[in-house]
Design a protein around this nucleic acid. Structure first.
Lengths: 132, 132
DNA sequence: CCGAATCCACCGGGATACTG
DNA sequence: CAGTATCCCGGTGGATTCGG
């Protein structure tokens, strides 16, 4: 095999082969988790209130997402058997510690949104020319 | 309203209502993008080599993911009309700038993997008791 | 070797209706 | 209010086949 000179042996010790990392990132990156974690970042909330703040989420998905986050130890749940039922959700220490990295990503998107949007329309324009 | 002491009025100026941010995060967080960006982080690669390093990805998904990343301005593509065809992929400046935030997230997962796995089995154990 | 196209199975997730 | 259960549609993504 020829060597084009661009070979780099840099070792970024990353996801590559680790399934669990992958699973966790899948969870973190799924459609609603980030939104929920962020919304709970400002303080504990009741189910309905949380749903109201997470525009567009169905109660089915909210329940499911909360269960997953609870299972992963990021969210706690406290049910009080009043009538009608009262359930509060909040972030655990683990969940809180995720806010930072999440924020980093969101900040990056925020800073680069313009460039991305521009790249997209530029790309789409070229496609038109090709397929005109 | 009673003050339970955990109320926080912190304003995290986040995704909440912004669709575009959401779109971009969806892209960044989709099943393969992160893996591809990370793999290209070590240097440009040819299609086949990239596929080999991204264990499990089908060529269909690799093509699709690369197109998306190219459209978003994160990846460049250079086709050389040799026989057989040679196509190289690499990260643009924008793509490279994403490595940092991505790394932050991956590092977080790495540091907290143990705790999450533990939380999961603990949670699953309790479910067994309930449903016996 | 690179990739487009087709076919198809699976499941994420919305709408709705029903329990406690 | 806080879920659970059911139905069902569209998108995701794998396998395979074809073209350049």
């Amino acid at each position: 095999m020829d060597n084009t000179g661009t070979e780099r042996t840099t070792e970024l010790p990353l996801l590559e082969d680790c399934m669990i990392t992958r699973q966790i990132l899948d969870r973190v990156g799924d459609k609603w988790s980030m939104l929920i974690v962020v919304n709970l970042g400002a303080g504990q909330l009741r189910f309905k209130e949380l749903q109201r703040r997470s525009s567009g989420i169905s109660q089915r998905m909210l329940t499911q997402t909360l269960r997953h986050l609870e299972r992963d130890g990021m969210v706690w749940r406290k049910a009080t058997p009043t009538v009608p039922l009262t359930v509060e959700y909040g972030l655990t220490t683990l969940g809180l510690s995720l806010l930072g990295p999440l924020q980093t990503l969101v900040d990056w998107v925020d800073s680069n949104r313009g460039e991305i949007v521009e790249a997209r329309s530029s790309y789409d324009g070229q496609q038109e020319n090709i397929q005109g």
